[in-house]
Amino acid sequence: MAAVPEAAQRSLRRLSEPEWRSRSDAHCNRVSHWILPHRERRRRGVAHPVLDFLFTYYSLRPAQLERWHPGPGVVLRGPGAAAFLGQTGYRRHPDGVFLDLTGLPDRLRSTAGFIGALLTATAERAPRLGCFGLHEWAMVYRTPTPRHTAVPLRLGPAGTDAVVESLPVQCTHFDAFRFFTAAARPRNALTPRREDQLDLEQPGCLHANMDLYKWAYKLGPACPSELLADCFELAVAVRELDMRASPYDLADLGYPPVRIETPSGRAEYVRAQAGFAERAAPLRARLVELCRQISDVVPAR
């Protein structure tokens, strides 16, 4: 493998072992707030209709979320840094160990190119804030088997169907639309397809903002764990709104409903949705910059 150019070596930030271990411990402690209860629920065989989504729909395992990565531009000093050498992309540096972007697999550069293009296109659009979270309602519309069978529908089946029929359904996100019931699909203003993502995703969409977590972990060891955790925390908060505005009665679990069937509930939803769009914007920008760094690197041969 080619040597690291001297100019590139000088630009790297050096972290002493106490410094990077402190950051690693802080990251693990931060995400353990959600991981430890999840593991305990799994041990007891107890499902959680809100929070399990973060560990089942999204494919990153809890142990992977706990693992700390510094991201590019950092040299880890001290004998403990050698433990990183068995992981993809890490190599020795005269002062320790660092993540060498030139040594990442070609597939990761390709992934970064797609993610960067998608997030850039999303950021360039104005947020659309009038969906009212009806995607969750459309997933149970006119079906005897709701997705969360252990949780009651707040308005019952007939009341739930009536809400879907009384409001415009305008979901732009393929991975939400694909779970619509057959009866609900024709009611949507759009027919999103996987190949339409670059043309349709927009920053007001709850699922597009939750998915920043997915795009962060798909960038693998190149994504600093602090950024990954920021995206995960956003996904947790968005998921909570998503389910509070859903047709399910989750009050016993500590999630008071956002009653989108009422004008005041819809206004509450739009305010929260706009807040998440604002909160997601800098995270999206950080991911776009990381994708640019990965895509622009010439791979080592």
Rank of each mutant, 00 (worst) to 15 (best):
A112K: 02
E66L: 15
P192W: 07
A280C: 03
L129D: 05
E17L: 05
A182V: 11
D175L: 09
V270T: 14
S264K: 12
E268V: 09
W20G: 03
G78H: 01
R259F: 00
A267S: 05
P144T: 04
A176E: 14
A272R: 09
A281L: 05
G45I: 04
M1T: 12
S295W: 09
V288L: 06
L85P: 04
V163C: 12
V164W: 08
P18M: 11
H135E: 08
T143E: 01
A7Q: 06
A208C: 14
L227P: 00
N188F: 06
T145A: 07
G86Q: 04
A150Y: 08
M210I: 00
A2R: 14
P79L: 07
P203Q: 05
A183P: 09
V4I: 15
P257S: 01
W34R: 09
F53L: 07
F177D: 08
A216N: 10
P105M: 15
L118H: 10
K218M: 10
A112H: 11
M243H: 04
A300Q: 12
P146V: 14
R92Y: 02
T102D: 04
R61H: 00
V46Q: 12
P146T: 15
V238M: 02
I260Y: 13
P105L: 09
E226C: 03
F114Q: 14
S166D: 08
D161F: 11
G159C: 03
L118G: 09
